[in-house]
Amino acid sequence: FACQWLNAHFEVNPDCSVSRAEMYSEYLSTCSKLARGGILTSTGFYKCLRTVFPNHTVKRVEDSSSNGQAHIHVVGVKRR
């Protein structure tokens, strides 16, 4: 389900990036709304992400508004 969900909601775009945590959060929200069992852990979800978008990269984005915490963004992917 996770791989199908990724294909339905995201697409390849080399000029874009999406927060990896936001992607997983949206996946969890969809699973909750659909009352799905067998929800992937974040590790399983990221493995699926690598399968669906094998050419993506990740980058660390520093967020000055959150006490220097960094966010991981998936580069080469955008929301549909």
Rank of each mutant, 00 (worst) to 15 (best):
F1W: 03
F1Y: 01
F1E: 14
F1M: 15
F1V: 04
A2R: 00
A2G: 08
A2D: 03
C3G: 01
C3H: 04
C3I: 05
C3P: 01
C3R: 02
Q4C: 09
Q4R: 12
Q4W: 13
Q4Y: 07
Q4D: 08
Q4F: 05
Q4N: 11
W5A: 00
W5S: 01
W5L: 01
W5K: 01
W5D: 00
W5C: 00
N7W: 05
N7C: 08
N7Y: 06
N7G: 12
N7T: 03
N7H: 05
A8N: 11
A8D: 06
A8M: 05
A8V: 04
A8W: 03
A8C: 05
H9W: 03
H9T: 08
H9L: 03
H9I: 04
H9E: 15
F10N: 02
F10G: 00
F10K: 00
F10T: 01
F10C: 02
F10H: 00
F10R: 00
F10Q: 00
F10I: 02
F10A: 00
E11I: 05
E11N: 02
E11R: 04
E11K: 03
E11W: 01
E11H: 05
E11C: 04
E11F: 02
E11Q: 03
V12H: 02
V12Q: 15
V12A: 10
V12K: 11
V12W: 09
V12E: 09
N13G: 12
N13Y: 08
N13C: 07
N13W: 07
N13Q: 06
N13L: 07
N13S: 09
N13H: 07
P14Q: 13
P14Y: 03
P14E: 04
P14T: 09
P14M: 11
P14S: 14
P14W: 07
D15P: 05
D15S: 04
D15Q: 15
D15A: 07
D15H: 04
D15C: 03
D15W: 04
D15R: 05
C16F: 05
C16S: 14
C16N: 14
C16G: 11
C16T: 14
C16V: 10
C16Q: 11
C16R: 09
S17G: 04
S17A: 15
S17N: 02
S17W: 05
S17P: 01
V18M: 05
V18Y: 14
V18I: 13
V18N: 06
V18S: 11
V18E: 12
V18L: 08
S19H: 15
S19N: 05
S19P: 08
S19V: 11
S19Q: 07
S19Y: 10
R20W: 09
R20D: 03
R20Y: 03
R20M: 05
R20T: 03
R20P: 05
A21Y: 04
A21S: 12
A21D: 04
A21W: 07
A21M: 06
A21K: 04
A21F: 08
E22F: 08
E22V: 08
E22H: 15
E22G: 14
M23D: 00
M23G: 00
M23T: 02
M23C: 09
Y24V: 02
Y24G: 00
Y24M: 14
Y24A: 03
Y24R: 03
S25F: 03
S25P: 03
S25H: 13
S25K: 04
S25A: 14
E26I: 10
E26K: 04
E26P: 00
E26C: 05
E26V: 05
E26R: 03
Y27L: 00
Y27I: 00
Y27N: 00
Y27Q: 00
Y27E: 00
L28H: 13
L28E: 14
L28N: 10
L28Q: 10
S29H: 13
S29V: 07
S29E: 15
S29I: 07
S29F: 03
T30E: 12
T30L: 10
T30F: 09
T30I: 01
T30H: 11
T30D: 12
C31T: 07
C31F: 06
C31I: 10
C31K: 02
C31L: 10
C31H: 13
C31A: 14
S32N: 12
S32A: 07
S32L: 06
S32P: 10
S32E: 12
S32C: 07
K33N: 01
K33G: 07
K33Q: 11
K33A: 09
K33E: 13
K33V: 10
K33W: 03
K33F: 02
K33C: 04
K33S: 11
L34S: 10
L34W: 10
L34T: 14
L34F: 08
L34E: 14
A35T: 08
A35S: 09
A35K: 12
A35I: 03
A35P: 10
R36Q: 10
R36N: 07
R36S: 13
R36K: 15
R36M: 10
G37P: 08
G37K: 13
G37D: 15
G37L: 04
G37C: 04
G37H: 10
G37S: 14
G38C: 07
G38I: 08
G38L: 10
G38S: 11
G38F: 05
G38H: 05
G38N: 08
G38Y: 12
I39A: 13
I39H: 07
I39K: 13
I39P: 12
I39T: 15
I39W: 08
I39C: 14
L40K: 06
L40F: 04
L40W: 01
L40P: 06
L40E: 10
L40N: 09
T41K: 10
T41A: 05
T41Q: 04
T41I: 05
T41P: 15
S42V: 06
S42F: 12
S42I: 15
S42T: 15
S42G: 12
T43N: 05
G44H: 13
G44T: 07
G44P: 08
F45T: 01
F45M: 02
F45W: 09
F45R: 00
F45Y: 01
F45P: 00
Y46M: 06
Y46F: 03
Y46I: 05
Y46E: 15
Y46V: 08
Y46W: 06
Y46Q: 12
K47N: 13
K47G: 05
K47D: 09
K47F: 09
K47P: 05
C48M: 02
C48D: 01
C48Q: 12
C48T: 14
C48I: 05
C48S: 11
C48F: 04
L49R: 00
L49V: 13
L49E: 00
L49A: 08
L49K: 00
L49H: 01
R50N: 14
R50A: 13
R50C: 05
R50L: 13
R50G: 08
R50K: 07
T51D: 09
T51S: 15
T51W: 05
T51G: 12
T51I: 06
V52M: 05
V52P: 01
V52I: 10
V52G: 01
V52C: 03
V52K: 06
V52L: 07
V52F: 01
V52W: 02
F53L: 01
F53W: 09
F53D: 00
F53V: 00
P54Y: 03
P54S: 08
P54L: 03
P54A: 09
P54G: 05
P54R: 08
P54D: 03
N55Y: 05
N55S: 10
N55P: 03
N55C: 11
H56V: 10
H56S: 11
H56G: 09
H56R: 02
T57R: 05
T57Y: 12
T57Q: 08
T57N: 12
V58Q: 12
V58F: 03
V58M: 12
V58T: 09
V58R: 07
V58G: 14
K59D: 15
K59W: 05
K59S: 13
K59A: 07
K59P: 04
R60E: 12
R60M: 05
R60I: 05
R60Y: 05
R60F: 10
R60T: 13
R60L: 13
R60H: 03
R60C: 04
V61W: 09
V61P: 07
V61T: 07
V61F: 11
V61E: 09
V61R: 11
V61H: 09
V61G: 15
V61D: 04
E62H: 05
E62M: 06
E62L: 09
E62A: 15
E62S: 08
E62C: 07
D63C: 10
D63P: 04
D63A: 10
D63E: 02
D63S: 02
D63Y: 13
S64F: 11
S65R: 12
S65T: 08
S65M: 06
S65V: 08
S65L: 05
S65F: 02
S65N: 04
S65W: 04
S65P: 02
S65Y: 04
S66R: 09
S66P: 10
S66E: 15
S66W: 02
S66C: 07
N67I: 03
N67A: 15
N67T: 15
N67L: 08
N67H: 05
Q69H: 02
Q69F: 05
Q69G: 14
Q69N: 15
Q69S: 10
A70L: 08
A70S: 09
A70G: 08
A70T: 14
A70R: 13
H71E: 14
H71A: 13
H71R: 13
H71V: 13
H71K: 08
H71F: 05
H71G: 11
I72P: 15
I72N: 15
I72S: 12
I72A: 13
I72K: 05
I72W: 11
I72V: 11
H73L: 09
H73W: 12
H73R: 10
H73F: 05
H73Y: 13
H73N: 05
H73A: 08
H73V: 09
V74C: 04
V74T: 03
V74H: 01
V74G: 10
V74M: 12
V74E: 01
V74W: 11
V75S: 08
V75C: 07
V75R: 12
V75H: 11
V75W: 09
V75L: 13
V75D: 13
V75P: 00
G76E: 01
G76W: 01
G76S: 03
G76V: 00
G76A: 03
V77Y: 00
V77Q: 01
V77H: 00
V77D: 00
